[in-house]
Structure formats: structure tokens, C-alpha cells
Amino acid sequence: MPHEEIMQKIGEIFCEVFDDDSLVITEQTSAKDIEDWDSLMNINLIAAMEDTFGIRFALKEVSDMQCVGDAADIIERKYAGT
């Protein structure tokens, strides 16, 4: 799946999880950019991404994520099988 398509789907996930269609998500977006992005919302985001993309993250992958682009990179690598 192309990186741009992954980012688009991640953007849709954020809008659904935060129930806010006005959110604009970029590669650099992180928890400090969205007021409601707390630890519970982070769990819901990860779970929603796993469901949407049909993948499972490793614990270390989740703990190493610093921004949305990191998640997109991991998803892209999983789709590429690397």
C-alpha cells in the first residue's frame, strides 16, 4: 500500500477516534498537537490502526512511535513484508 494512502487512512482513523472531522493529520503530528490525545486515546488509535490495516504492532514498535509518520512507516514496512 502506498505511503500516501496509508496516511490518508490514518487521518480518517484519527477523525473517527477523536470524533472530530476537522483534524488535519501530517507525518509530524504527535500527541502534543492534539489536546485529547492521552494514553487511553493512544490505545484506541493503535487498536483502530491494527483493525483497519489488518496488522499487529509489536510492543516495541508502539513504544518507539514518536509521531504519526513513524506509525505510517511501520505499517508500510509490514505491507512490504520487511
Binding site: I43, I46, E50, F57, A58, V62
Partner: peptide, 11 residues
């Protein structure tokens, strides 16, 4: 119905 081990959450 769902298990997310990475974030230790079940549905």
C-alpha cells in the same frame, strides 16, 4: 472479539 496485545486491550 478482538485482542490487541501491543496495547493490552480486548474488545
Amino acid at each position: 472479539t478482538e485482542i490487541h496485545e501491543s496495547v493490552r486491550q480486548i474488545t
